[in-house]
């Protein structure tokens, strides 16, 4: 059961990666992507502050970036 699920997952990944080769807009279609709010992390200080709050109040951290907190608040 577990093996089957894993195979399906891997097949999905392979499909997704193969698709990447031709995936995505042409350079002249990147007008929206160039907007500041479409950056992956447009407000890094805000992200860092929120991650810091959740790091000190919850057991999970990381994912977006490194899980370390750099402080003793957890």
């Amino acid at each position: 059961m577990r093996t089957a699920a894993r195979t399906v997952f891997l097949a999905g990944m392979a499909l997704a990666l193969a698709g990447c080769a031709s995936l995505g807009p042409k350079p002249w279609e990147k007008d929206l992507m160039a907007r500041h709010e479409m950056l992956v992390d447009p407000y890094p200080l805000q992200t860092a502050a929120e991650d810091h709050v959740y790091f000190s109040k919850e057991a999970s951290s990381g994912g977006r970036g490194f899980a370390g907190g750099g402080c003793g608040c957890n």
Partner: peptide, 22 residues
């Protein structure tokens, strides 16, 4: 010690997706 492996893909003109494993 840790690592983050990331894949960022512009899917369409208006859709950006990112997948990270840490």
């Amino acid at each position: 010690l840790g690592f983050v492996l990331g894949l960022t893909q512009v899917m369409t003109r208006s859709w950006l997706t990112q997948f990270n494993y840490a």
